[in-house]
Design a protein around this nucleic acid. Structure first.
Length: 553
RNA sequence: GCGCCUGUAGCUCAGCAGGAUAGAGCAGCGGCCUUCUAAGCCGCAGGUUGAAGGUUCGAGUCCUUCCAGGCGUACCA
Protein backbone atom coordinates (compact mmCIF):
# COMPACT_ATOMS: atom_id res chain seq x y z
CA UNK A 1 0.00 0.00 0.00
CA UNK A 2 1.51 3.27 -1.09
CA UNK A 3 -0.12 6.03 0.82
CA UNK A 4 1.59 9.25 0.31
CA UNK A 5 4.41 9.15 -2.12
CA UNK A 6 5.18 8.74 -5.73
CA UNK A 7 8.20 6.74 -4.71
CA UNK A 8 8.05 3.01 -4.93
CA UNK A 9 7.82 2.56 -1.18
CA UNK A 10 6.51 4.72 1.59
CA UNK A 11 8.53 6.14 4.40
CA UNK A 12 7.30 3.65 6.97
CA UNK A 13 8.30 0.71 4.83
CA UNK A 14 11.70 2.25 4.33
CA UNK A 15 12.14 2.90 8.06
CA UNK A 16 11.05 -0.60 9.02
CA UNK A 17 13.50 -2.20 6.62
CA UNK A 18 16.30 0.13 7.62
CA UNK A 19 15.71 -0.46 11.34
CA UNK A 20 15.62 -4.21 10.94
CA UNK A 21 18.98 -4.20 9.21
CA UNK A 22 20.37 -1.85 11.85
CA UNK A 23 19.35 -3.92 14.84
CA UNK A 24 22.15 -6.28 15.78
CA UNK A 25 19.85 -9.09 16.88
CA UNK A 26 17.02 -11.09 15.43
CA UNK A 27 13.68 -9.54 16.39
CA UNK A 28 11.05 -11.76 18.02
CA UNK A 29 8.53 -13.16 15.57
CA UNK A 30 5.52 -11.00 16.40
CA UNK A 31 7.56 -7.93 17.27
CA UNK A 32 6.07 -4.78 15.87
CA UNK A 33 8.04 -1.66 15.15
CA UNK A 34 5.87 1.30 16.11
CA UNK A 35 6.05 4.86 14.92
CA UNK A 36 4.49 8.03 16.19
CA UNK A 37 4.49 11.71 15.40
CA UNK A 38 6.16 13.62 18.22
CA UNK A 39 4.28 16.65 19.52
CA UNK A 40 7.50 18.52 20.18
CA UNK A 41 9.07 19.70 16.88
CA UNK A 42 12.54 19.29 18.36
CA UNK A 43 11.86 15.57 18.43
CA UNK A 44 11.76 15.36 14.67
CA UNK A 45 8.94 14.26 12.42
CA UNK A 46 8.67 10.56 13.14
CA UNK A 47 9.94 8.67 16.12
CA UNK A 48 10.11 5.10 17.28
CA UNK A 49 10.31 3.54 20.72
CA UNK A 50 12.05 0.47 19.30
CA UNK A 51 15.08 0.70 21.58
CA UNK A 52 12.91 1.16 24.68
CA UNK A 53 11.00 -1.96 23.81
CA UNK A 54 14.19 -3.92 23.17
CA UNK A 55 15.79 -2.90 26.45
CA UNK A 56 14.09 -5.69 28.35
CA UNK A 57 15.04 -8.34 25.81
CA UNK A 58 18.65 -7.25 25.34
CA UNK A 59 19.28 -6.34 28.97
CA UNK A 60 21.04 -3.15 27.96
CA UNK A 61 20.16 0.49 28.61
CA UNK A 62 17.74 1.70 25.94
CA UNK A 63 19.84 4.74 25.07
CA UNK A 64 22.81 2.49 24.26
CA UNK A 65 20.67 0.34 21.98
CA UNK A 66 19.26 3.42 20.31
CA UNK A 67 22.75 4.78 19.62
CA UNK A 68 23.89 1.47 18.16
CA UNK A 69 20.89 1.35 15.87
CA UNK A 70 21.42 4.90 14.70
CA UNK A 71 25.09 4.17 13.95
CA UNK A 72 24.16 1.20 11.81
CA UNK A 73 21.22 2.85 10.11
CA UNK A 74 21.40 3.25 6.34
CA UNK A 75 20.17 6.76 5.67
CA UNK A 76 18.33 7.31 2.43
CA UNK A 77 18.19 10.99 1.70
CA UNK A 78 15.04 10.64 -0.34
CA UNK A 79 13.24 9.96 2.95
CA UNK A 80 15.06 11.31 5.94
CA UNK A 81 17.70 13.88 6.63
CA UNK A 82 18.81 12.51 9.96
CA UNK A 83 18.22 10.00 12.70
CA UNK A 84 18.94 10.77 16.33
CA UNK A 85 19.13 8.67 19.47
CA UNK A 86 17.80 10.68 22.34
CA UNK A 87 17.22 10.76 26.11
CA UNK A 88 15.32 7.73 27.40
CA UNK A 89 15.89 5.82 24.17
CA UNK A 90 13.76 7.23 21.43
CA UNK A 91 15.03 7.36 17.88
CA UNK A 92 13.86 10.49 16.10
CA UNK A 93 13.81 10.93 12.36
CA UNK A 94 13.58 14.15 10.44
CA UNK A 95 12.13 14.29 6.96
CA UNK A 96 14.53 15.28 4.25
CA UNK A 97 13.53 18.27 2.17
CA UNK A 98 13.38 15.92 -0.79
CA UNK A 99 10.83 13.80 0.99
CA UNK A 100 8.69 16.78 1.91
CA UNK A 101 8.75 18.15 -1.61
CA UNK A 102 7.99 14.78 -3.14
CA UNK A 103 5.06 14.38 -0.79
CA UNK A 104 3.76 17.79 -1.74
CA UNK A 105 4.06 17.02 -5.44
CA UNK A 106 2.26 13.76 -4.88
CA UNK A 107 -0.55 15.53 -3.01
CA UNK A 108 -1.04 17.98 -5.86
CA UNK A 109 -1.21 15.09 -8.28
CA UNK A 110 -3.84 13.25 -6.26
CA UNK A 111 -6.00 16.29 -5.65
CA UNK A 112 -9.33 15.33 -4.17
CA UNK A 113 -8.18 11.73 -3.89
CA UNK A 114 -5.43 12.74 -1.48
CA UNK A 115 -6.07 11.09 1.86
CA UNK A 116 -7.83 8.06 0.45
CA UNK A 117 -6.57 4.58 1.10
CA UNK A 118 -7.68 1.00 0.79
CA UNK A 119 -7.67 -0.43 4.29
CA UNK A 120 -11.32 -1.36 3.80
CA UNK A 121 -10.55 -3.71 0.95
CA UNK A 122 -13.97 -3.25 -0.62
CA UNK A 123 -15.82 -4.70 2.35
CA UNK A 124 -19.54 -3.94 2.25
CA UNK A 125 -20.68 -1.98 5.28
CA UNK A 126 -24.15 -0.86 6.24
CA UNK A 127 -24.42 2.10 8.53
CA UNK A 128 -27.82 2.50 10.11
CA UNK A 129 -28.48 5.66 12.04
CA UNK A 130 -31.07 8.15 13.17
CA UNK A 131 -33.93 5.71 12.44
CA UNK A 132 -36.08 7.96 14.57
CA UNK A 133 -39.64 6.92 15.14
CA UNK A 134 -41.95 8.47 12.56
CA UNK A 135 -44.01 9.99 15.30
CA UNK A 136 -42.64 13.47 15.14
CA UNK A 137 -39.92 15.77 13.91
CA UNK A 138 -36.25 14.95 14.43
CA UNK A 139 -34.64 16.17 17.60
CA UNK A 140 -31.14 17.09 18.69
CA UNK A 141 -30.04 13.56 19.44
CA UNK A 142 -30.99 12.60 15.89
CA UNK A 143 -28.90 15.50 14.67
CA UNK A 144 -25.89 14.19 16.53
CA UNK A 145 -26.38 10.69 15.18
CA UNK A 146 -26.86 12.08 11.68
CA UNK A 147 -23.65 14.10 11.80
CA UNK A 148 -21.76 11.10 13.09
CA UNK A 149 -23.20 8.45 10.80
CA UNK A 150 -23.03 10.46 7.64
CA UNK A 151 -19.43 11.47 8.30
CA UNK A 152 -18.47 7.89 9.06
CA UNK A 153 -19.93 6.82 5.77
CA UNK A 154 -17.84 9.40 3.95
CA UNK A 155 -14.70 8.41 5.86
CA UNK A 156 -15.16 4.69 5.39
CA UNK A 157 -15.75 5.10 1.69
CA UNK A 158 -12.57 7.15 1.49
CA UNK A 159 -10.78 4.26 3.17
CA UNK A 160 -11.79 1.63 0.69
CA UNK A 161 -14.95 0.29 2.28
CA UNK A 162 -18.15 0.14 0.32
CA UNK A 163 -20.33 1.82 2.91
CA UNK A 164 -24.00 2.62 2.56
CA UNK A 165 -26.36 4.39 4.89
CA UNK A 166 -29.86 3.41 5.81
CA UNK A 167 -32.76 4.87 7.75
CA UNK A 168 -35.18 2.38 9.27
CA UNK A 169 -38.74 3.60 9.57
CA UNK A 170 -40.79 1.92 12.27
CA UNK A 171 -44.13 2.16 10.57
CA UNK A 172 -45.70 -1.04 11.82
CA UNK A 173 -46.01 -1.11 15.56
CA UNK A 174 -48.52 -0.04 18.14
CA UNK A 175 -47.15 3.47 18.08
CA UNK A 176 -48.55 4.08 14.61
CA UNK A 177 -51.98 3.22 15.89
CA UNK A 178 -51.53 5.58 18.79
CA UNK A 179 -50.23 8.29 16.51
CA UNK A 180 -53.26 7.94 14.26
CA UNK A 181 -55.55 7.95 17.25
CA UNK A 182 -53.95 11.12 18.64
CA UNK A 183 -54.39 12.77 15.31
CA UNK A 184 -58.02 11.78 14.93
CA UNK A 185 -58.82 13.21 18.33
CA UNK A 186 -57.27 16.50 17.33
CA UNK A 187 -59.00 16.44 14.00
CA UNK A 188 -62.38 15.85 15.58
CA UNK A 189 -61.83 18.80 17.86
CA UNK A 190 -60.43 21.19 15.28
CA UNK A 191 -62.65 20.41 12.33
CA UNK A 192 -65.82 19.19 13.92
CA UNK A 193 -65.61 20.58 17.42
CA UNK A 194 -66.20 17.12 18.80
CA UNK A 195 -64.51 16.20 22.06
CA UNK A 196 -63.40 12.62 22.35
CA UNK A 197 -60.95 11.42 24.95
CA UNK A 198 -57.26 11.79 24.24
CA UNK A 199 -55.61 8.36 24.33
CA UNK A 200 -53.36 7.34 27.18
CA UNK A 201 -49.79 8.21 26.25
CA UNK A 202 -50.90 9.84 23.01
CA UNK A 203 -48.78 12.29 21.03
CA UNK A 204 -49.53 15.86 22.00
CA UNK A 205 -46.93 17.64 19.94
CA UNK A 206 -47.72 20.72 17.93
CA UNK A 207 -47.09 18.82 14.72
CA UNK A 208 -50.15 16.71 15.44
CA UNK A 209 -52.22 19.84 15.49
CA UNK A 210 -50.70 21.29 12.36
CA UNK A 211 -51.44 18.15 10.46
CA UNK A 212 -54.85 17.88 11.94
CA UNK A 213 -55.93 21.15 10.44
CA UNK A 214 -55.32 20.50 6.79
CA UNK A 215 -56.46 16.93 6.54
CA UNK A 216 -59.93 16.25 5.27
CA UNK A 217 -61.52 12.88 5.43
CA UNK A 218 -64.92 11.40 5.16
CA UNK A 219 -67.13 11.22 8.18
CA UNK A 220 -66.20 8.96 10.97
CA UNK A 221 -68.28 7.77 13.83
CA UNK A 222 -66.00 9.84 16.05
CA UNK A 223 -67.09 8.22 19.25
CA UNK A 224 -66.43 4.72 17.97
CA UNK A 225 -63.15 4.83 16.11
CA UNK A 226 -61.80 1.45 15.17
CA UNK A 227 -58.23 0.25 14.81
CA UNK A 228 -58.38 0.21 11.04
CA UNK A 229 -59.24 3.90 10.96
CA UNK A 230 -56.59 4.79 13.51
CA UNK A 231 -54.00 2.81 11.60
CA UNK A 232 -54.88 4.47 8.31
CA UNK A 233 -54.62 7.89 9.90
CA UNK A 234 -51.36 6.81 11.50
CA UNK A 235 -49.88 5.75 8.19
CA UNK A 236 -50.92 8.98 6.60
CA UNK A 237 -49.05 10.81 9.33
CA UNK A 238 -46.03 8.58 9.00
CA UNK A 239 -45.81 9.44 5.31
CA UNK A 240 -45.94 13.13 6.00
CA UNK A 241 -43.52 12.97 8.88
CA UNK A 242 -41.03 10.97 6.85
CA UNK A 243 -41.15 13.60 4.13
CA UNK A 244 -40.36 16.22 6.75
CA UNK A 245 -37.57 14.17 8.25
CA UNK A 246 -36.02 13.72 4.83
CA UNK A 247 -36.03 17.41 4.11
CA UNK A 248 -34.55 18.22 7.51
CA UNK A 249 -31.77 15.73 6.93
CA UNK A 250 -31.13 17.15 3.48
CA UNK A 251 -30.72 20.56 5.05
CA UNK A 252 -28.18 18.91 7.30
CA UNK A 253 -26.27 17.61 4.29
CA UNK A 254 -27.29 14.04 5.01
CA UNK A 255 -28.84 11.84 2.38
CA UNK A 256 -29.49 8.20 3.05
CA UNK A 257 -28.84 5.56 0.41
CA UNK A 258 -31.99 3.82 1.48
CA UNK A 259 -35.09 4.40 3.57
CA UNK A 260 -36.37 1.03 4.59
CA UNK A 261 -39.75 0.40 6.20
CA UNK A 262 -40.54 -2.02 8.95
CA UNK A 263 -43.71 -2.91 7.07
CA UNK A 264 -41.58 -4.03 4.11
CA UNK A 265 -39.49 -6.22 6.36
CA UNK A 266 -42.62 -7.71 7.87
CA UNK A 267 -43.96 -8.53 4.45
CA UNK A 268 -40.71 -10.12 3.37
CA UNK A 269 -40.14 -12.08 6.52
CA UNK A 270 -43.25 -12.05 8.58
CA UNK A 271 -42.98 -12.17 12.33
CA UNK A 272 -45.11 -15.31 12.81
CA UNK A 273 -42.91 -17.24 10.46
CA UNK A 274 -39.69 -16.02 11.99
CA UNK A 275 -41.02 -16.81 15.45
CA UNK A 276 -41.82 -20.38 14.41
CA UNK A 277 -38.46 -20.79 12.72
CA UNK A 278 -36.68 -19.71 15.85
CA UNK A 279 -38.69 -22.17 17.88
CA UNK A 280 -37.94 -24.94 15.37
CA UNK A 281 -34.25 -24.20 15.55
CA UNK A 282 -34.45 -24.42 19.31
CA UNK A 283 -33.44 -20.77 19.67
CA UNK A 284 -36.73 -19.72 21.18
CA UNK A 285 -39.17 -21.32 23.55
CA UNK A 286 -42.58 -20.83 25.10
CA UNK A 287 -42.72 -19.71 28.70
CA UNK A 288 -45.67 -18.31 30.67
CA UNK A 289 -47.63 -17.83 27.48
CA UNK A 290 -44.92 -15.74 25.84
CA UNK A 291 -42.16 -16.69 23.44
CA UNK A 292 -38.60 -16.05 24.59
CA UNK A 293 -35.46 -15.86 22.49
CA UNK A 294 -32.79 -17.80 24.36
CA UNK A 295 -30.31 -14.98 24.16
CA UNK A 296 -28.78 -15.97 27.49
CA UNK A 297 -27.15 -18.90 25.75
CA UNK A 298 -25.30 -16.47 23.54
CA UNK A 299 -23.90 -13.99 25.99
CA UNK A 300 -26.93 -12.02 27.17
CA UNK A 301 -27.74 -12.04 30.89
CA UNK A 302 -31.28 -13.21 30.38
CA UNK A 303 -33.74 -14.36 27.76
CA UNK A 304 -35.98 -11.81 26.11
CA UNK A 305 -39.52 -11.86 24.88
CA UNK A 306 -40.14 -11.78 21.14
CA UNK A 307 -43.85 -12.61 21.28
CA UNK A 308 -46.09 -11.41 24.06
CA UNK A 309 -48.68 -13.48 25.82
CA UNK A 310 -51.17 -11.02 24.37
CA UNK A 311 -50.28 -12.50 20.99
CA UNK A 312 -48.26 -9.87 19.22
CA UNK A 313 -44.56 -9.42 18.47
CA UNK A 314 -42.41 -7.19 20.62
CA UNK A 315 -40.13 -4.69 18.95
CA UNK A 316 -37.29 -7.20 19.24
CA UNK A 317 -38.65 -9.71 16.72
CA UNK A 318 -38.99 -7.52 13.64
CA UNK A 319 -35.71 -5.92 14.59
CA UNK A 320 -34.02 -9.29 14.42
CA UNK A 321 -35.67 -9.83 11.06
CA UNK A 322 -34.41 -6.47 9.90
CA UNK A 323 -30.82 -7.19 10.83
CA UNK A 324 -31.07 -10.62 9.28
CA UNK A 325 -32.28 -8.90 6.15
CA UNK A 326 -29.21 -6.67 6.12
CA UNK A 327 -26.99 -9.73 6.02
CA UNK A 328 -29.10 -11.29 3.32
CA UNK A 329 -28.62 -8.21 1.18
CA UNK A 330 -24.89 -8.94 1.22
CA UNK A 331 -23.55 -6.60 3.87
CA UNK A 332 -20.55 -7.98 5.70
CA UNK A 333 -20.36 -5.48 8.51
CA UNK A 334 -23.35 -3.87 10.20
CA UNK A 335 -22.78 -0.68 12.12
CA UNK A 336 -25.70 0.76 14.06
CA UNK A 337 -25.67 4.09 15.80
CA UNK A 338 -28.06 4.09 18.73
CA UNK A 339 -29.10 6.54 21.35
CA UNK A 340 -28.05 6.03 24.96
CA UNK A 341 -31.54 4.88 25.92
CA UNK A 342 -31.00 1.74 23.84
CA UNK A 343 -27.77 0.65 25.35
CA UNK A 344 -29.40 -2.11 27.37
CA UNK A 345 -30.52 -3.47 24.05
CA UNK A 346 -27.00 -4.17 22.74
CA UNK A 347 -26.23 -7.53 24.40
CA UNK A 348 -29.64 -8.77 23.35
CA UNK A 349 -29.19 -7.94 19.69
CA UNK A 350 -25.61 -9.16 19.66
CA UNK A 351 -26.70 -12.43 21.19
CA UNK A 352 -29.54 -12.85 18.73
CA UNK A 353 -27.33 -12.29 15.71
CA UNK A 354 -24.70 -14.61 17.11
CA UNK A 355 -27.39 -17.25 17.60
CA UNK A 356 -28.29 -16.87 13.96
CA UNK A 357 -24.73 -17.73 13.05
CA UNK A 358 -23.25 -14.33 12.27
CA UNK A 359 -19.71 -13.60 13.40
CA UNK A 360 -19.62 -11.48 16.52
CA UNK A 361 -17.44 -8.78 15.04
CA UNK A 362 -19.73 -8.33 12.05
CA UNK A 363 -22.12 -6.27 14.16
CA UNK A 364 -21.02 -3.08 15.86
CA UNK A 365 -23.10 -0.66 17.86
CA UNK A 366 -21.91 2.87 18.39
CA UNK A 367 -23.68 4.68 21.17
CA UNK A 368 -24.14 8.34 20.47
CA UNK A 369 -24.37 9.68 23.97
CA UNK A 370 -27.06 11.99 25.11
CA UNK A 371 -27.23 15.65 24.34
CA UNK A 372 -28.36 17.89 27.15
CA UNK A 373 -29.91 21.04 25.93
CA UNK A 374 -29.24 24.03 28.05
CA UNK A 375 -31.34 27.13 27.83
CA UNK A 376 -31.03 30.00 30.22
CA UNK A 377 -28.53 27.93 32.19
CA UNK A 378 -31.07 25.18 32.72
CA UNK A 379 -31.48 21.78 31.28
CA UNK A 380 -34.35 21.42 28.86
CA UNK A 381 -36.20 18.19 29.44
CA UNK A 382 -37.39 16.51 26.32
CA UNK A 383 -40.24 14.16 25.76
CA UNK A 384 -41.85 13.47 22.45
CA UNK A 385 -45.11 12.37 23.92
CA UNK A 386 -45.42 15.44 26.10
CA UNK A 387 -44.67 17.48 23.02
CA UNK A 388 -41.66 19.27 24.46
CA UNK A 389 -38.96 18.77 21.96
CA UNK A 390 -36.32 20.91 20.42
CA UNK A 391 -36.41 20.20 16.76
CA UNK A 392 -33.45 19.55 14.57
CA UNK A 393 -34.88 22.17 12.23
CA UNK A 394 -34.63 24.73 14.96
CA UNK A 395 -31.03 23.86 15.59
CA UNK A 396 -30.14 24.16 11.91
CA UNK A 397 -31.91 27.47 11.72
CA UNK A 398 -30.20 28.87 14.78
CA UNK A 399 -26.68 27.55 14.40
CA UNK A 400 -26.44 26.47 10.78
CA UNK A 401 -25.57 23.10 9.34
CA UNK A 402 -21.83 23.65 9.17
CA UNK A 403 -21.45 24.81 12.72
CA UNK A 404 -23.84 22.22 14.12
CA UNK A 405 -22.17 19.29 12.37
CA UNK A 406 -18.74 20.46 13.37
CA UNK A 407 -19.85 21.06 16.92
CA UNK A 408 -21.19 17.54 17.28
CA UNK A 409 -18.14 15.94 15.72
CA UNK A 410 -15.71 17.84 17.88
CA UNK A 411 -16.72 15.58 20.71
CA UNK A 412 -16.33 11.85 20.86
CA UNK A 413 -19.59 10.02 20.35
CA UNK A 414 -19.17 8.36 23.73
CA UNK A 415 -19.06 11.66 25.59
CA UNK A 416 -22.15 13.34 26.94
CA UNK A 417 -22.68 16.70 25.43
CA UNK A 418 -24.05 19.84 26.99
CA UNK A 419 -25.44 21.89 24.17
CA UNK A 420 -26.07 25.38 25.36
CA UNK A 421 -28.55 26.82 22.93
CA UNK A 422 -28.10 30.40 24.05
CA UNK A 423 -24.38 30.10 23.72
CA UNK A 424 -24.57 28.33 20.39
CA UNK A 425 -26.56 31.18 18.97
CA UNK A 426 -24.39 33.81 20.56
CA UNK A 427 -21.19 32.19 19.52
CA UNK A 428 -22.08 31.63 15.92
CA UNK A 429 -19.45 34.15 14.89
CA UNK A 430 -16.83 32.55 17.11
CA UNK A 431 -17.38 28.93 16.35
CA UNK A 432 -14.15 27.10 15.48
CA UNK A 433 -15.60 25.92 12.20
CA UNK A 434 -15.36 29.48 10.94
CA UNK A 435 -11.69 29.52 11.70
CA UNK A 436 -11.17 26.65 9.28
CA UNK A 437 -13.55 27.95 6.67
CA UNK A 438 -11.89 31.32 6.90
CA UNK A 439 -8.54 29.72 6.06
CA UNK A 440 -10.13 28.15 3.00
CA UNK A 441 -11.74 31.42 1.94
CA UNK A 442 -8.43 33.20 2.43
CA UNK A 443 -6.67 30.69 0.20
CA UNK A 444 -9.28 31.21 -2.48
CA UNK A 445 -8.77 34.91 -2.11
CA UNK A 446 -5.03 34.55 -2.67
CA UNK A 447 -5.66 32.59 -5.83
CA UNK A 448 -8.04 35.26 -7.07
CA UNK A 449 -5.47 37.92 -6.28
CA UNK A 450 -2.83 36.08 -8.33
CA UNK A 451 -5.04 36.07 -11.40
CA UNK A 452 -4.49 39.72 -12.12
CA UNK A 453 -0.69 39.64 -12.43
CA UNK A 454 -1.25 36.34 -14.20
CA UNK A 455 0.79 34.19 -11.84
CA UNK A 456 -0.10 30.50 -11.82
CA UNK A 457 0.83 27.81 -9.42
CA UNK A 458 3.64 25.58 -10.60
CA UNK A 459 4.38 22.28 -8.90
CA UNK A 460 7.67 22.20 -10.78
CA UNK A 461 8.88 25.14 -8.73
CA UNK A 462 8.39 23.72 -5.28
CA UNK A 463 12.11 23.19 -4.83
CA UNK A 464 12.17 26.95 -4.23
CA UNK A 465 10.34 26.46 -0.96
CA UNK A 466 12.90 26.90 1.80
CA UNK A 467 11.28 28.63 4.76
CA UNK A 468 10.41 26.98 8.06
CA UNK A 469 6.80 28.12 7.76
CA UNK A 470 6.58 26.39 4.40
CA UNK A 471 7.93 23.12 5.69
CA UNK A 472 5.72 23.29 8.77
CA UNK A 473 2.77 23.41 6.43
CA UNK A 474 4.00 20.55 4.30
CA UNK A 475 4.54 18.41 7.38
CA UNK A 476 0.97 19.02 8.44
CA UNK A 477 -0.26 18.08 4.99
CA UNK A 478 1.68 14.83 5.14
CA UNK A 479 -0.20 13.84 8.30
CA UNK A 480 -3.60 13.96 6.66
CA UNK A 481 -3.86 10.38 5.31
CA UNK A 482 -2.85 9.00 8.71
CA UNK A 483 -5.56 11.03 10.39
CA UNK A 484 -8.22 9.70 8.05
CA UNK A 485 -7.13 6.14 8.71
CA UNK A 486 -7.22 6.77 12.42
CA UNK A 487 -10.78 8.05 12.19
CA UNK A 488 -11.74 5.00 10.19
CA UNK A 489 -10.15 2.56 12.64
CA UNK A 490 -11.77 4.24 15.61
CA UNK A 491 -15.07 4.84 13.84
CA UNK A 492 -14.78 8.35 15.14
CA UNK A 493 -14.54 11.48 12.97
CA UNK A 494 -13.38 13.63 15.85
CA UNK A 495 -9.63 13.62 14.99
CA UNK A 496 -10.40 15.29 11.67
CA UNK A 497 -11.80 18.33 13.45
CA UNK A 498 -8.69 18.60 15.59
CA UNK A 499 -6.45 18.15 12.57
CA UNK A 500 -8.23 20.78 10.49
CA UNK A 501 -7.95 23.28 13.32
CA UNK A 502 -4.22 22.62 13.49
CA UNK A 503 -3.79 22.87 9.76
CA UNK A 504 -5.75 26.12 9.63
CA UNK A 505 -3.67 27.48 12.47
CA UNK A 506 -0.40 26.51 10.74
CA UNK A 507 -1.63 28.17 7.59
CA UNK A 508 -2.72 31.38 9.32
CA UNK A 509 0.74 31.64 10.85
CA UNK A 510 2.37 31.09 7.49
CA UNK A 511 0.11 33.69 5.93
CA UNK A 512 1.08 36.25 8.54
CA UNK A 513 4.78 35.70 8.00
CA UNK A 514 5.19 34.99 4.28
CA UNK A 515 3.61 36.80 1.40
CA UNK A 516 2.49 34.49 -1.37
CA UNK A 517 2.09 36.73 -4.40
CA UNK A 518 5.10 39.00 -4.90
CA UNK A 519 7.33 40.34 -7.66
CA UNK A 520 9.30 37.13 -7.51
CA UNK A 521 7.09 35.26 -9.95
CA UNK A 522 8.84 31.92 -9.60
CA UNK A 523 8.66 31.87 -5.83
CA UNK A 524 5.05 33.03 -6.07
CA UNK A 525 4.28 30.07 -8.32
CA UNK A 526 5.85 27.71 -5.81
CA UNK A 527 3.94 29.20 -2.90
CA UNK A 528 0.73 29.15 -4.89
CA UNK A 529 1.28 25.43 -5.36
CA UNK A 530 1.73 25.04 -1.61
CA UNK A 531 -1.40 27.10 -0.98
CA UNK A 532 -3.34 25.06 -3.45
CA UNK A 533 -2.32 21.93 -1.58
CA UNK A 534 -3.47 23.39 1.73
CA UNK A 535 -6.75 24.45 0.20
CA UNK A 536 -7.19 20.97 -1.23
CA UNK A 537 -6.61 19.27 2.09
CA UNK A 538 -8.93 21.61 3.96
CA UNK A 539 -11.60 20.97 1.35
CA UNK A 540 -11.03 17.21 1.46
CA UNK A 541 -11.18 17.20 5.25
CA UNK A 542 -14.29 19.34 5.48
CA UNK A 543 -15.95 17.23 2.85
CA UNK A 544 -15.38 14.12 4.94
CA UNK A 545 -17.37 15.64 7.76
CA UNK A 546 -19.99 17.18 5.50
CA UNK A 547 -19.08 20.78 6.17
CA UNK A 548 -18.88 23.27 3.32
CA UNK A 549 -15.68 24.96 2.20
CA UNK A 550 -16.67 28.46 1.11
CA UNK A 551 -14.72 30.41 -1.53
CA UNK A 552 -15.30 33.67 0.24
CA UNK A 553 -16.67 34.83 3.55
C1' G B 1 -28.34 -4.33 43.33
C1' C B 2 -26.17 -5.12 38.34
C1' G B 3 -24.45 -2.92 33.60
C1' C B 4 -22.71 1.21 30.44
C1' C B 5 -20.85 6.43 29.77
C1' U B 6 -18.31 10.58 31.94
C1' G B 7 -14.77 13.19 35.54
C1' U B 8 -8.15 16.88 32.49
C1' A B 9 -7.01 25.06 32.98
C1' G B 10 -12.48 29.77 35.13
C1' C B 11 -15.81 27.44 30.79
C1' U B 12 -16.22 23.74 26.49
C1' C B 13 -13.18 19.87 25.27
C1' A B 14 -8.37 17.23 22.92
C1' G B 15 -4.56 13.90 24.22
C1' C B 16 -3.66 9.59 18.20
C1' A B 17 -4.03 0.75 20.84
C1' G B 18 1.33 3.10 27.38
C1' G B 19 5.81 7.42 25.56
C1' A B 20 9.51 12.68 25.93
C1' U B 21 8.09 19.37 29.44
C1' A B 22 -0.41 17.19 29.72
C1' G B 23 -2.54 20.61 24.75
C1' A B 24 -6.42 23.75 21.93
C1' G B 25 -10.56 27.15 21.69
C1' C B 26 -13.40 30.58 24.50
C1' A B 27 -13.10 33.98 28.64
C1' G B 28 -8.71 37.47 30.95
C1' C B 29 -4.23 40.65 30.18
C1' G B 30 -0.49 43.03 26.59
C1' G B 31 1.10 43.92 21.52
C1' C B 32 0.34 43.71 15.54
C1' C B 33 -3.67 46.34 9.90
C1' U B 34 -0.50 52.30 3.76
C1' U B 35 0.88 45.37 0.89
C1' C B 36 -2.74 38.52 -1.09
C1' U B 37 -9.61 38.80 3.88
C1' A B 38 -7.80 41.50 11.46
C1' A B 39 -13.64 35.92 11.20
C1' G B 40 -6.35 36.73 11.46
C1' C B 41 -1.25 36.76 13.91
C1' C B 42 2.41 37.17 18.23
C1' G B 43 3.11 37.10 23.55
C1' C B 44 1.57 36.56 29.01
C1' A B 45 -1.16 34.11 32.68
C1' G B 46 -3.86 29.80 33.92
C1' G B 47 -3.18 22.28 36.20
C1' U B 48 -2.23 17.72 42.62
C1' U B 49 -5.43 14.84 34.97
C1' G B 50 -12.04 13.19 40.80
C1' A B 51 -9.21 10.09 45.17
C1' A B 52 -6.09 6.06 46.74
C1' G B 53 -3.38 1.83 45.58
C1' G B 54 -1.19 -1.49 41.67
C1' U B 55 1.27 -3.23 36.84
C1' U B 56 6.81 -1.26 34.33
C1' C B 57 12.09 1.60 31.93
C1' G B 58 7.56 5.12 31.56
C1' A B 59 0.41 5.84 33.34
C1' G B 60 -4.18 11.22 31.68
C1' U B 61 -4.09 6.40 28.95
C1' C B 62 -4.04 -0.42 31.50
C1' C B 63 -5.92 -3.21 36.50
C1' U B 64 -8.42 -2.88 41.53
C1' U B 65 -11.15 -0.13 45.11
C1' C B 66 -13.61 4.25 46.31
C1' C B 67 -16.10 9.26 45.36
C1' A B 68 -19.26 12.37 42.11
C1' G B 69 -22.65 13.13 37.86
C1' G B 70 -25.55 10.87 33.90
C1' C B 71 -28.06 6.78 31.44
C1' G B 72 -29.98 1.95 31.24
C1' U B 73 -31.79 -2.50 33.49
C1' A B 74 -40.13 -4.16 30.16
C1' C B 75 -44.56 -9.37 27.67
C1' C B 76 -42.60 -0.07 25.32
C1' A B 77 -40.65 1.27 20.87
Amino acid sequence: MDLNSTQNKDIYTYLREALITAVSVELPQDFEIEFESPKDPSHGDISTNLALKLAGVLRKPPITIASEIVNNLPIDDSFIAKAEAVKPGFINFTYSETYSRNALADLLLKGEDYGKCDIGGGKRVLLEFVSANPTGPLNIVSARAAALGDSLKRIMNACGYRAESEFYVNDAGQQVLLLGHSFLVRHAKTMHNIDIGFPEGGYKGAYVMEMAVDWVDKDFDWHNLNDEQKLRAGKMMVDRIVVNQKSTLNLFNVSFDKWIYESEIRTKNNPDKLRDELIDKGLACLKDGAVYFKTSQFGDDEDHVIWTSAGRPTYFLPDIAYHQDKYERGFEWLIDIWGPDHHGYIPRMKAALKALGHPEDSFTVILAQQVNLMRGGEKVKMSKRAGEIIEMNELIEEVGTDAARFFFLQRKASAHLDFDLDLAVKETEENPVFYIQYAHARLCSIERFAEDPGIKMDAGKINLLKETEEFNLIKRLIEFPQIIQLCCRKLEPQPITVYLLQLASTFHSFYQKRRVVTDDRELSSARLALCHAVKQVIANGLNLIGVSAPDRM
